[in-house]
Amino acid sequence: MTVALRGLSTVVPPTVLIQEEVRDVFAGQPGLNRLAQRIVATSFNVSGIDTRHTVLAELSRDMRPDEPVFFDIARMELLLPGTKARNELYAEHATTMYLDAGRAAIDATPGVEASDITHVITVSCTGFYAPGPDYVIARDLGLGADVERYHLGFMGCYAAIPALRIAKQLCEADAAAVVLVVSVELCTLHLRSSNDPDTIVASSLFADGAGSGIVTALPLEPGERAFDLDRFATRITPDGEGDMAWKIGDHGFEMVLSNAIPSIIDEHITGALQPLFAHDPALADALATDASSGAVEHWAIHPGGRSILDKVESRLRLTEAQLLPARETLRDFGNMSSATVMFVMRNILDSDAAADGDRVAAMAFGPGLTVESSLMTVRG
């Protein structure tokens, strides 16, 4: 049975953050010591990001709310709202983005209507509410009252790949299943000024966005482009549990993002990919010798940061062209946590370089340190 990811769609909020402008705001915050000011300059300047998107319209220079919550533009000062205030904004804005992304995936999948959806899987680590986004999607998009719903919460940047794996398993168990997968992350709700290096690095990287798609074994329509979901693998590295983490604080969620992460990924990435390629000797040999050889034409790497992409490119000996979708995603959208890898996949699928039958290896990293990967084939 062939199970495909169809209708792959991405959504971002309208407010655009210019990286240089955000850097200057963070660098000018009261209370920053000299070391923190240097870290702000370095982190933002070498991030590989030009623009990001946010649901916080008040971060735009065009907005001057009477009672600012996050940013007092008159004083150019970042404020410090509590976790409750941040999560209330999450519930408001995430609902809109879940519906927009879910609707986009359904509209982009020919031959599939909302009433055909049998399962919904939602993904997020940047907020919580109940009834949750899975319920809202079922209610507001016209899904059946008996649709099965699942939510993957607080898993971090790798969570979209397990969501696709579960969707594939549901389709393998029921050939008539049509699974809507939607990932929404509003990372900018947790931005704040700090002297802590991890917080500064996170503030230079994270952004808001949503990715979605339909997973089903139903046949593709003529002219449709999609990904066959071939295989999945998951690995926990022996190091890194304390180097990447996501905790709930009094003033939002707090990211632990140590500078050791690129080195840990560099050391363990090949071993983490071995189970994904073990079924195919040609692929396994390519991984062991030269991953850029063409056995896998495209690489959808989660752009956790520029240094991570540099390490992946070097360790796997990938070409600049193979990392271009990831670098372009980082440049234009930043790190949108779990949704980001779907943006990279969309970049590949939309590219003229992706031909029918091409193999794609997707990979994302998250707390643990966990590596989730998927092997796919371009169709159409």
Rank of each mutant, 00 (worst) to 15 (best):
S307F: 12
S307Q: 15
S307N: 08
S307V: 06
S307E: 12
I308E: 05
I308K: 00
I308C: 04
L309K: 05
L309Y: 09
D310T: 15
D310E: 12
K311C: 05
K311M: 13
V312E: 09
E313Q: 14
E313F: 00
E313G: 02
S314M: 10
R315W: 02
L316C: 07
L316P: 01
L316F: 09
R317K: 14
R317W: 02
R317S: 10
L318R: 07
L318W: 07
T319K: 05
E320K: 12
E320N: 07
A321C: 05
A321F: 11
A321D: 13
Q322A: 06
L323A: 04
L323S: 01
L323M: 14
L323D: 01
L323V: 12
L323C: 03
P325F: 00
P325D: 06
P325Q: 05
A326N: 00
A326G: 12
R327W: 01
R327H: 11
T329V: 15
T329Q: 07
T329L: 04
T329S: 11
L330Y: 08
R331V: 12
R331K: 14
D332M: 07
D332A: 15
D332N: 12
F333L: 09
G334N: 05
N335S: 08
M336L: 14
M336H: 07
S337Q: 04
S337T: 12
S337P: 02
A339Y: 11
V341C: 09
V341L: 07
V341Q: 11
V341M: 04
V341F: 02
F343E: 13
F343Y: 13
M345E: 15
M345K: 10
R346I: 12
R346H: 14
N347R: 14
N347P: 03
I348G: 01
D350M: 04
D350S: 13
S351E: 00
S351M: 02
S351W: 08
D352T: 05
D352M: 06
D352A: 12
A353W: 00
A353F: 00
A354P: 11
A355T: 08
A355S: 06
G357T: 15
G357C: 10
G357Q: 09
D358Y: 11
V360W: 08
V360P: 05
V360R: 11
V360E: 07
V360A: 05
V360L: 07
A362T: 14
A362D: 12
A364V: 07
A364D: 04
A364P: 04
F365E: 13
F365W: 12
F365A: 11
F365T: 02
G366L: 09
G366F: 07
G366P: 01
G366Q: 03
G366H: 02
P367T: 06
G368Q: 03
G368I: 14
G368L: 05
L369E: 01
T370Y: 01
T370C: 05
T370G: 00
T370A: 03
V371N: 11
E372Y: 01
E372N: 14
E372F: 02
E372W: 00
E372A: 14
S373C: 11
S373Y: 02
S374R: 02
S374C: 15
L375Q: 15
L375C: 09
L375F: 13
M376W: 10
M376A: 10
